[in-house]
Design a protein around this nucleic acid. Structure first.
Lengths: 253, 253
DNA sequence: AAGTGGTCTAGACCACGAA
DNA sequence: TCGTGGTCTAGACCACTTC
């Protein structure tokens, strides 16, 4: 189609395409509907497939589309509000906890974790794997690092294996007095194993929530939770799941 | 180098490249150092430039690299911890506030904002633009929506224009009793104007923090703050800026 | 003017899911 | 087996910064 003269200050094609598609999604498509395939869409808009894909990637990042290899591209439902850190003064594994313990091992954590826990860099800690499911969809995978000193009364005889062992460790943790917790959120990319659990490809964008549980002035446990960035909106503070529905890309100027 | 036989389950080239580059960054480069240009790097690794770029994009997303058109690719410093919602019971504009008011207009907000504020969809509200700078770098741009009913004593005579007017509106807001606030975080992409303020390109990944300020049982103000996802780690809770330095991509398995 | 990253193209082949 | 999205290539040109 040759050179286009879309704008006086030429906006990238993929950006313009993203805008056009956004409007089309809101007016002509409903949630769950399947879009035409990438080759057809690219032809329809007169761009290369790579350019079309760049626009789709943006929309997927913003949680408006969901793409699955071998299946197709569908219109995504609105992001789910996921409460984080509302159990402000509860240990992981408390009664109202939404996490499913999956496994527990005893191993040496990465150096950065050891430093935060103030354990030696060669010291093994309990590593509990948990997953979080909302509305039938997996939304997060977590690694919980618990120094052996935080669960001193745990004996080998108590701890069979797998999820049962994870629960035993968490139960022991409850016995200590929790003084507070600190949360941090940052953008990351899913490692291969997390990606698999979250039903995404490696490198998919995730929100990494790091929580430090503090007891007796020290870090008694460290949680690193990996949330799907495309489907989740993390809520903090007083009342969690209130629907604000602020769309991060369509605001007044 | 022809076809590679890296893995029995073939890992994508860009993903492998990302791993190799991550290790190289940690062992052979220091913060601020300039990498070879993309064409040279691609040739060195025997891949197409597009593939190399896919790996660099990942690393930039993870906050390890910084790329600037016309300049080059540099090793990024560790993400800065940015406290969010620690002023848990303070209005925006309080004494210790880190935001710089830039402007203030009176306009009709987007429908989603009007709904959250419980104002009519055609009702104009004060819109305060503020920016946040840390370590000399812009990290966030904010739009604050304040219904006129939240600052009833504000008179036209008090409000000249620009930053001064923004400060006047915030000052009026302080007079009300704040009951609480709610925060939500999600991934978004920077609009053109935010991108410019954050020194990024349109579509750059951002963490969108939506805060609802509650007074007298109603939403008295709504803040939508856009943080650079590549350079920021948002901290919540008791004590803000503690360095945990958890690297979101290099954890034990 | 030279060099950088950003955009775009037109192909090819692969991995996966469903029929 | 077929259709989907995912990866990869080898180019071209553009926008921006610096000299």
């Amino acid at each position: 189609m040759g050179t286009t003269q879309l704008e006086s200050v030429p906006e990238p094609k993929y950006w313009h395409l993203r805008t056009v598609l956004t409007e089309a999604l809101e007016s002509e498509f409903s949630v769950g509907e399947i879009l035409p395939n990438e080759r057809d869409l690219a032809a329809r808009f007169g761009v290369a497939r790579a350019t079309l894909r760049q626009a789709l990637e943006q929309l997927e990042l913003e949680g408006r589309l969901q793409r699955r290899r071998g299946v197709g591209t569908t219109v995504a439902p609105p992001r789910v509000g996921v409460a984080v850190g509302t159990e402000q003064h509860a240990w992981p594994g408390a009664a109202d906890d939404v996490w499913q313990p999956a496994d527990c091992t005893l191993a040496v954590p990465p150096a950065s974790v050891a430093d935060a826990l103030e354990t030696g860099r060669d010291e093994a800690v309990h590593i509990v794997r948990r997953s979080r499911v909302t509305h039938g969809q997996p939304v997060a995978a977590e690694l919980l690092y618990i120094p052996q000193s935080s669960v001193p009364d745990l004996t080998a005889i108590d701890t069979p294996s797998g999820a049962a062992r994870a629960r035993a460790v968490l139960r022991e943790l409850q016995r200590r007095e929790l003084e507070g917790q600190e949360n941090a959120v940052e953008l990351g990319s899913a490692r291969a194993d997390d990606a698999k659990e979250l039903d995404r490809l490696p490198g998919a964008p995730v929100l990494v929530v790091t929580t430090r549980y503090i007891a007796e002035g020290r870090t008694a446990a460290l949680s690193v939770a990996t949330y799907r960035a495309d489907t989740c909106r993390l809520t903090f503070g007083d009342s969690g799941g209130v629907e604000i529905h602020q769309d991060p890309e369509r605001r007044a100027s």
